[in-house]
Design a protein around this nucleic acid. Structure first.
Lengths: 140, 140
DNA sequence: TGACAATATTCGTCAAACCGGATATACAAA
DNA sequence: TTTGTATATCCGGTTTGACGAATATTGTCA
């Protein structure tokens, strides 16, 4: 049961739960998306994502200077069930909708040229982000 | 999601998982049963049980010098689903069967007059262990 | 090349969690 | 009351985890 406990430990953190929730609803997200939506520092976002990657829950894909994270296609039945159950569970919380809305807003803003700014501030730097855009599948 | 995280934190410990697993399969157990089957110290058993009681996952019933713990009849849908899923999940682990067998052995030994000191003797169980329906593997 | 953006990692700190052993409490029986 | 058992709680010590700030790394672009 040690393994199961280790898995639950991952879920025992609000920030990580939120990240997983977002990743359940977008194919992939980069670190700055998560920073922005969760309103957390960069190191916090990166650290938590690394934790989950090390446990095999998420994977990352490097593209230029961006790291895109997504849920791991789990082979393990146990973990798969966990994630499915988790998604159902989280979807019931009122907070969840708000989070997704926030994500929508952020992604739109980002497309307009917002940059990945240090927590809180909102510098609308007229940055041209090249062709790399995290416009992902799923409209919900 | 804070609440959900708090719940998962409870599950993020191997001993507590085992306790919950046992309680999923017996209507109630006293502290010394859990000590014996899990082979842990008394303070550890008592502490973890208290933790879960404080979170509303288990309840206790005092009878003489014994404290009988059982799963809380949860009203909260979230927690209920969690527990159901948890039971299913744990039932798949090979370790789980062994635990239940161990419990069987212990309860039998206890009936014969074993007591609960560090792996030794016992006290008679005032509980009708024969009529309790373990909903999963094991049988009485 | 140098400046800058996105991310990873390190560092020091702080709080929480877990633990065993000791002690306290509660109860039962002699 | 005294003794012994079952459990709860306290005490300290160790480990683990989360955090922000600072720094390192990597990639882009001018």
């Amino acid at each position: 049961m040690k393994e199961a406990a280790r898995f639950f430990k991952i879920l025992a953190d609000e920030s990580r739960l939120k990240m997983l929730w977002l990743l359940c609803n977008r194919r992939e997200l980069c670190v700055c998306d998560i920073m922005a939506v969760l309103e957390i520092t960069q190191s916090k976002a990166s650290r938590h994502l690394a934790t989950m990657r090390n446990l095999g829950i998420v994977t990352d894909r490097r593209e230029g200077q961006w790291s895109y994270y997504s849920l791991c296609p789990v082979e393990d039945k146990l973990a798969k069930d966990h994630l499915k159950h988790l998604k159902t569970t989280l979807s019931r919380l009122p907070e969840s909708d708000r989070l997704l809305e926030k994500l929508q807003v952020w992604l739109k803003e980002k497309e307009k040229g917002a940059s990945c700014t240090p927590l809180g501030k909102h510098c609308s730097a007229p940055l041209e982000t090249g062709g790399i855009r995290p416009s992902l599948a799923g409209g919900t």
